[in-house]
Nucleic acid binder design. Sequence first.
RNA 1: GGUCUCGUAGUAUAGCGGUUAGUACAUCGGGUUUUCAUCCCGACAAUGCGGGUUCGACUCCCGCCGAGAUCACCA
Length: 485
Amino acid sequence: MKEEIVTRFAPSPTGYIHLGNVRSAIYPYLIAKQAGGKFILRIEDTDQARFVEGATELIEETLSWLGMKWDEGPEVGGEHGPYFQSERREIYKKWAMKLISAGRAYVDDTPEEEIQKYREECNARKVPFLYRNFRPEKLKFEWVEGKPIRFLSDPKRREWKDEVMGELSAGPEVQDDIILIKKDGLPTYNFAHIVDDAEMGVTHIVRGVEYLSSMPNYLAIYEALGLPRPKFVSLPHVLAPTGNKKLSKRDGAKSVTGYRADGILSEAMLNYLCCLGWNDGTEQEIYTMDELVSRFSVEKIQNSGARFDETKLLWYSGQWIRKIFDERGVDALYLRTEGFWPEEAEGASEEYKKQVLSIIYDRLRVLGDLKTMTGYFFRDPEIKIEMIENNKFVKKMSELERALSLRKTAEILGEIEEWNAENIQAGLNRALEETGRKPAELFSLVRISLSFAEFSPALNLTMEVLGRETSLARIRKVITAISNE
RNA sequence: GGUCUCGUAGUAUAGCGGUUAGUACAUCGGGUUUUCAUCCCGACAAUGCGGGUUCGACUCCCGCCGAGAUCACCA
């Protein structure tokens, strides 16, 4: 019988999920789903000082938004609960007692100040601080309320395999009597995650490379507890856009929620993040969640850090907006646009907004662009004569020529029987002939008159959506404005 | 300082003993009757350095250099 694959994402509720950390959720999710296994969400809230109200909800929301469902964890429950470490005190105590009775863990009743003094001494002498060199001769193997419990280490060279980094090893220098249980009775990460992963049957531990240097200590605990080692998957860091540091809040990279608010599609975020430091060997760039689940492979995870590149994220976003429109139609894309329209669109009908979306979608990088790009579809733009005067093509026409050209165009368009893109284009072409202007000149003039925006979709499409009345009214308004000057 | 890890264009990556070192983003140029965008075409641009091994090295080995991680009653 094949062992079931179980992975987990175990964040601390200390704020929003950091962009760089989302990968530590996506990768284990893909590993589990690919094998038909389980993905667990566990909240590591043993540090009461850093706990942030609402952080858990934010984490859950982010995972859900990205399309990840956890099989066990908060909200959904499961057979290995509770899924908040703060509620698992008794479990950790039980495991700590195993070590205590085996003579592998002891109570640390050295005053903190004394340890601190020793630590400073070591720093001054530039030797590594190791508690084991400082521990009392006679150890007390018992559980004492209000005192930390330390692991009794057995330093030696240890070797292990990392699914990403390969065969690794480290000497005894880094192994120490690390704290298992803090004086508040809650476990440290170092102990808690080992206990939880064992209890929950986790087969693959996926986490950042920063834990690599603690591995020898973890290995010692697995050994002392008689636990089998799970597979270790170390993920390289996501680097900040500049410098060589790992991505952090001050690097200008927004949180996942921040990008979501800008109107980045979740598919794009997932796609980008997953392909940052992973590649299936083909030249494919765009992947759906289903494709990622079937194609993902741990062996293909890069082993050097990857720099976060917002520009590429935005490219993915644009690609996905087009992909959804092209493959699933306006309605599918429209569903995503709620909250991204400009204020003026408030009273507009759904149908009208869909029409606007249909002609503007291929210009969007994020849905939030709707706000700045579609205003003139919902209210008459303010006339800015300088936009006309400064345009490099319209500039070539005299004021009189502008007025006459617009008048002619309005006249021709006014005669159109059925107001549709094709007929409008025919009308525009006729206006071109009759005015004798170059396309660049006349079309620029008309385009600006209609929108007074830096850019807009094709003229005929814009007018079709705007409607005959509005289009002609706007052109006439400009004619009046020019003539009065 | 100890320990550990990493090193292909600006960025993300492919290639894993013989390639014109491929692709994508970015940048620059061109095309699609106006703009912006899409789309298409083109250009620029990389194996950190030094030694080996080999007929041949981006690929294997060693050294150096550079970068990062970690050394908490944080995770």
